[in-house]
Amino acid sequence: MNIVVCVKHVPDATADRRFEPDNTVDRGSVDGLLSELDEYAVEQALQIKQKREGEGVEVTALCVGPDKAVDAVRKALQMGADKGVHVIDDAIAGSDAVATSLVLAKAIERAGGEAKIDLVVCGMASTDGGMGVVPAMLAERLGLPQVTLASVVEIQGNQVRIKRNGDTATEVICGTMPLVLSVTDQSGEPRYPSFKGIMAAKKKPLETWSLGDIGVDAGQVGLSVAWTQVEETTARPARTAGEIVKDEDGSGAKALADFLAANKLI
């Protein structure tokens, strides 16, 4: 069984994230890391591998991004993925979700080769752009079923069954592999790489592919051909801290009620 996990390298959400003058995400000045929401995808892939020990399950971590993005693949290898693929090409910079999904889809096809991919696992969204559309786009491009936004994943034979928390209902969704699976941050805490895992990762195969290697024309990707254009990005004025009172013998409640009344909120 062949599993590909898509992993994105993103600016650390707890740092001061910003935009470049061309309104693309500044990936230089802020430390990057494997998107935390993709760690959940790696975790699910590894759990499937563990449950099917001895059945030849292979987990490939796939990342599209600039130089430093290879760190996302490395982290996945340290967690326990078997091999890594980093697609890197200057032409990709500034690609939107549509173009990114094209590169990922072509890379997944190549990663499968003769053996075909049984399962593509994604996080629910990236922690930077956060659109949450790439899994559905991948399913569309690969012509595969999507079983997405899973909070619980169960696999039996070639059947994947998930729980999906929607806006108005919780649903149970079923699909037959091959398919695209996306998992939420409710699906189970991702493991930390062990010392052994970190050492082992150094010896795992990690390939670097260009657009040419996966048969994508450079003219199909990048900022200049993006189907959407960010015209302006503005920092929201920081909220200024208001009045803070210490509660002593019920004084806090009175003060708060006064504040609410003064602002016509009660």
Binding site: R239, A241, G242, E243, I244, V245, K246, D247, G250, G252, A253, K254, A255, L256, A257, F259, L260, A261, N263, I266
Partner: peptide
């Protein structure tokens, strides 16, 4: 850092007192 109004205190005493205060008003 982002509040307009903050109370440093235990929510288990502050919130019920606020509720009483609001209901009284």
């Amino acid at each position: 850092e982002l509040v307009d109004f903050g109370v440093v205190g235990d929510l288990h005493t502050v919130l019920p007192a606020v509720t009483t205060e609001i209901n009284a008003r």
